[in-house]
């Protein structure tokens, strides 16, 4: 380790600062005392669906379709989650079922 303790603490503090800026900034710019601009209210309504879609893709960002297992375990696991959820609508069952399918695939099949 090349850094001194102080330098490490400053580095960690910078990561904390950066993270907290991204979390607190919207609340500082649009305090609850003042009316939020209509455009921002609109964004607050439509962004969640889009950003949850972004999160799903974010989880799959390291999947390679062209090499290794070609993303088949991810596809089958995701399909299992979707089907289970449409069938039983039980959050825990869908998540656990899909994860077990995926683990079996990556550990025993691929």
């Amino acid at each position: 380790m090349t850094m001194t303790m102080t330098q490490q603490m400053i580095t960690i503090a910078m990561v904390v600062l950066g993270t907290m800026l991204t979390r607190f900034l919207p609340f500082m710019i649009f305090p609850s005392g003042k009316p939020t601009p209509k455009y921002v209210q609109y964004l607050g309504k439509v962004l969640p669906s889009a950003v949850i879609g972004l999160l799903v893709i974010y989880c799959l960002k390291d999947v390679s379709l062209l090499s290794g297992s070609h993303g088949i375990p991810e596809l089958v696991g995701a399909a299992a989650v979707v089907l289970l959820h449409l069938w039983k609508k039980n959050m825990l069952l869908s998540i656990a079922g899909g994860t077990v399918v995926y683990m079996v695939l990556v550990q025993l099949v691929f």
Binding site: G18, T19, L25, P26, T36, L54
Partner: peptide, 21 residues
Amino acid sequence: ALFLTLMVNARHLFYGISMLD
């Protein structure tokens, strides 16, 4: 470190806007 953190965590801005209410 600060700028890379801001980039990686920029998605939180969208969460904040969604959670204002």
